[in-house]
Design a protein around this nucleic acid. Structure first.
Lengths: 142, 142
DNA sequence: TCCGTTGGTTTCCAATGGAGACCAGGTGCT
DNA sequence: AGCACCTGGTCTCCATTGGAAACCAACGGA
């Protein structure tokens, strides 16, 4: 019966123009899965500062593998969030830049990152408390 | 040399109080990986509307497996974003609720979801354009 | 000549995610 | 009485994913 209490959520393909991420088969769900991603977030944030080339991104985003970087960049390009331009120089140089559509998402991502960076102490405290109380039953490495 | 051009980003453990998600070994990176997650996002959004029980969440969040639901809920509980309360009723009932810390993150997540639900048409158009232009080299199923 | 740099792709292996079985223990339905 | 089903999970199995590293072509510099 609780389902009915959610008034504003349709079934994705309804009379409303917007999708519904709570529906598994809605395209917005797949979109959410893409943008709610570690590497996508970091790439978009970086490119929002300035356009950058492949190896620049790789250096900037510590720990990303070449595979995930090229893969994620291709997804972002396909989704129209990032543009890719090849300059046929000496060793071919490829520059990535954020698109207006991508830029329109950055504010939200930035807010999420800001939250993570500022609220980390509270989260760490919660983790410590959790691990102390239920430490025996939930060890770090089971 | 480009690294130096990013003035505001430290090496996570610096004089600044905040972390740096761009550093692979920074705890905020792990935190980002948790909150930038499909299921975490949907769970927090749902619990922000009202507290809910396990199977309620499972019904509400279409397509989530029991394993991922319980796993994600435990992570969120450990991070202090969600609280878990067991009521020893008839069949034991477990209620999950969002904490103030979790609620402080929801606005950003909500913005991300809103972006996905409203900008989906533009993304779909970009995908169609991409698939048309480079359709032969990047077929849907390779 | 050999290394490094460009931007990737490919290969291999470990970790993750999903489907579904299984669990306890009580309750309603027949 | 017996059976299915509710609660909230866990466990096992398999497919997909992610990461590390090798490989690639073409060119520049030592």
């Amino acid at each position: 019966m609780q389902e009915g209490t959610f008034s504003s959520h349709g079934h994705c393909r309804g009379t409303t123009a917007r999708g519904d991420v709570f529906a598994a088969d809605c395209p917005t769900r797949r979109l959410l899965d893409r943008i709610a991603d570690k590497w996508s977030t970091l790439i978009l944030l970086t490119l929002h500062d300035q356009p950058m080339r492949f190896n620049g991104l790789k250096r900037r985003i510590d720990g990303v593998s070449q595979k995930m970087l090229s893969q994620t960049l291709r997804s972002l390009e396909r989704d129209g969030l990032v543009s890719r331009s090849v300059v046929a120089t000496v060793p071919v140089s490829v520059t990535y830049a954020i698109t207006p559509l991508g830029a329109s998402l950055v504010a939200s991502l930035r807010a999420m990152i800001d939250w993570a960076e500022t609220r980390m102490p509270e989260v760490a405290a919660a983790q410590a408390a959790y691990d102390t109380i239920s430490g025996r039953s939930v060890p770090e490495i089971a």
